[in-house]
């Protein structure tokens, strides 16, 4: 497969540990993007099951009718989750090609990695913009411990801030550590259950990945 010609539609990769809120973040992002006129496709990677993809087909396609069900595709990678988005992204690239052929008017393809460790990154051949999501329940040490995902992602998202008081996580510490370890790179606190802060994630995507362009359907 020619890896070099798969850059037509902008692609955002979302990675993070198991249970950090990757799927929930996508479920919050898509309605806001849709409201602004942007059409999305979704690929959801997981190790064995396709549970997350099936959940989004139910929530985003069947219930909210925001996109066709066949624009949400699950991939059971069968190995360590990062291998399919970093070392050998060929299966994801093949699915992207399929999605691009089905609907060339998409503005964005969201690629969810399977839950993985703090060294997760996306192959630049696969994702143009990389969001790494962690949650406060792992403790406020998370940002300062670093790792490729936390340090090198284009945007760090810290989720479940409503739980901070219950698990003894100090958000000020997380904020200061994130500033120090990520230097000038952005990070945001969110609560994906309520949607608090998610609008800012959308703003980052529209500005840094979609270059503040209007949705494709408005200019074609």
């Amino acid at each position: 497969m020619n890896l070099e010609n798969k850059m037509k539609i902008a692609k955002v990769g979302i990675g993070g540990p198991v249970g950090s809120g990757k799927t929930q973040l996508i479920e919050m992002l898509v309605p806001i993007l849709k409201k602004k006129g942007f059409k999305c496709g979704i690929i959801s990677n997981d190790v064995i099951s396709k549970e997350d993809a099936e959940r989004m087909q139910r929530t985003l396609a069947t219930e909210l009718k925001l996109m066709p069900e066949d624009m949400i595709i699950g991939i059971a990678t069968g190995g360590c989750p990062h291998t399919a988005v970093r070392e050998d992204p060929s299966i994801n690239l093949a699915v992207i090609e399929e999605i691009e052929q089905k609907d060339p008017t998409l503005d964005l393809i969201i690629i969810e990695s399977g839950g993985d460790n703090v060294m997760t990154t996306f192959s630049p051949a696969l994702a143009d913009y990389f969001i790494y999501i962690v949650d406060v329940s792992g403790g406020d040490k998370y940002p300062r411990k670093g790792g490729l995902g936390i340090e090198s992602s284009d945007l760090l998202v810290i989720n479940k801030i409503d739980l901070a008081t219950y698990v003894g996580a100090n958000l000020s510490i997380m904020k200061n550590d994130a500033i120090r370890i990520r230097k000038n790179k952005p990070f945001e606190f969110v609560n994906c259950k309520t949607g608090l802060g998610v609008e800012k994630i959308v703003d980052h995507i529209i500005h840094n990945l979609l270059f503040d362009k209007k949705p494709l359907k408005n200019i074609t």
């Binding site: 890896l3 070099e4 850059m7 630049p124 051949a125 143009d128 500005h207 270059f211």
Partner: peptide, 23 residues
Amino acid sequence: LEKTRLRVKTNQGTDLGLILNSA
């Protein structure tokens, strides 16, 4: 440097959107 789509600012604040056709 490995990316083909990237928004950056120069040291003088010029806003650039890189959309490289190939990789």
